[in-house]
Design a protein around this nucleic acid. Sequence first.
DNA 1: TAGAACCTTGGAGTGCGCTCCAAGCAAGCG
DNA 2: CGCTTGCTTGGAGCGCACTCCAAGGTTCTA
Lengths: 154, 154
Amino acid sequence: MTVMETTGTRTDTCAGPPQQNRRPDGDDHYTISEVVAFTGLTAHTLRWYERIGLMPHIDRSHTGQRRYTNRDLDWLDLVGKLRLTGMPVADMVRYAELVREGDHTYGERFQLLKTTREDVLARIDELRGTLAVLDRKISFYADAGQALASERSR
Amino acid sequence: MTVMETTGTRTDTCAGPPQQNRRPDGDDHYTISEVVAFTGLTAHTLRWYERIGLMPHIDRSHTGQRRYTNRDLDWLDLVGKLRLTGMPVADMVRYAELVREGDHTYGERFQLLKTTREDVLARIDELRGTLAVLDRKISFYADAGQALASERSR
DNA sequence: TAGAACCTTGGAGTGCGCTCCAAGCAAGCG
DNA sequence: CGCTTGCTTGGAGCGCACTCCAAGGTTCTA
């Protein structure tokens, strides 16, 4: 007799490979602690994400407890990925707003994703530069270690 | 009549390509604002780095103003790279301490560098995963854009 | 039906990496 | 000489992304 509704407008669906341990759609009502187990986020963080508008409105049980759906988990997966890129939470909130505003924001969302993609490519490049520096330093230290070893063995 | 000393023990040198706009060694005494121009850091940040032990002791002019050397700039370059990896400042301070402690810390520095290298590889991998997600979403939005466009042209 | 485990809220607190402030000294210029 | 510009210090403040608290209601297991 409780929660059976789905949110309706599927306006940001392109899920990718299905996640492990999920219940089938229509039977997908997870408590906050289940979502904690899935995502590795804390319950505090999940509630905070909702407060700042980073999550859509989450279904509630008849007593007001949160019941997350598979769609919510998909969204959290995306948020997790974007977080890894260093995207500020405020930007993710902006993206969430665009999704809520409906289909006429497709263009803006598209731009935002493309910009983010460029940022990610740039970060990968930076990291490669850093890797080169580390490798130079590491081989320097390896050589120095060799020198000390042969020093010691003399 | 002022600052002409060099720090002595070259215990972490493996400079890589020489930087632009630098003065030759022995004539390398940069004011803090010159270093700001080189590094893009603020003077506040440079002084803060020194306070927390992330920098070696910086030479001073006869009136107590900081005079950075080429070696200091090299160190700041490394710090900048490490910062890009997301390494916490505290860990960089630890590395700086090891450098100050002398040659018997070679081994520990070597380990720290190798661990960092692994972290960087892992981060690059994460970013590649995110890139894949973004690309999927982007092509989804591109298709949706196409659909909307043909909708409009009908 | 008792008790443990879990959930709710608004608001306050934390840790990190800066970032800025006030008050004062020093150097160069007209 | 006064003025501007640049540097010094210790300590306070800030923005971000959580993280936690207190006080109370709910759900599950024995």
